[in-house]
Nucleic acid binder design. Structure first.
Lengths: 115, 115
DNA sequence: CCCTGTAGCTTGCTATGCAAGGTAGTGGCC
DNA sequence: GGCCACTACCTTGCATAGCAAGCTACAGGG
């Protein structure tokens, strides 16, 4: 029943891609992004990871922010994907695909007959 | 022409799986494993990464080693997959599959209609 | 008045990939 | 002999990034 959770090391480098990917389907804010990540299977997603990450993405220009008041708490800081961010997402996804291909090659390699 | 290379962060946590996967097709040694990783597409694979990693895997009992003289240099330290290592490989591969599923969910999420 | 939920953020820890460098054995070349 | 290249092993120091823990603050309910 307990679904295997990807450990935190395995997650490294893929999280920015996940955030940018989520933002592609509409603007969002930190708290919501954490919940979205949990909803798609990343139970370990924590705000201590996400907030520094989105701060970095904004600093790098991949996302931009604006404030909107919340009906149930402090103001929300919404993030939107910039053109640079969309480009970055495509690049990162290409690297991800390449990594997937490498993993497949390593795990499906035929047995060495000389042994 | 230049194939996208997965960056080093993205690689974290998957390298042990790759090593164990390669060893499943036959015993090998550090130098050879580095070359194998390059052959399957990981151009950045370096001995400074692999040697500490296989040392850790042996310490943890996932692999075991034995020495064999080389026809062209110092003795080779061959590594073989233990039962624990095979088990570890299955577990890690399950976590990898789960991560792949999460990535797909994040990148193929339908656009938010409310926007 | 406190507790829960929402929403933002920081600090300190840790794991790990990698460049750089170091040692050694074998063989080829001048 | 002296030098270089290739093979083969290993270590040190650094940078990155995920995460637990903790902090502040607003809103509403008991």
């Amino acid at each position: 029943m307990n679904e295997a959770q990807p450990d935190s090391q395995m997650l490294k480098g893929t999280l920015p891609m996940l955030i940018l990917g989520l933002l592609r389907s509409g603007d969002s804010y930190g708290y919501q992004l954490v919940e979205d990540l949990r909803a798609i299977g990343l139970a370990q997603a924590s705000s201590g990871t996400i907030y520094p990450l989105i701060a970095r993405l904004e600093r790098e220009g991949a996302i931009a922010s604006y404030l909107l008041s919340s009906p149930s708490g402090p103001a929300r800081k919404y993030y939107t994907l910039t053109d640079a961010g969309a480009h970055e997402l495509r690049d990162t996804a290409a690297r991800w695909d390449e990594l997937c291909a490498i993993v497949i090659r390593a795990l499906t390699r035929p047995p060495d007959p000389k042994e």
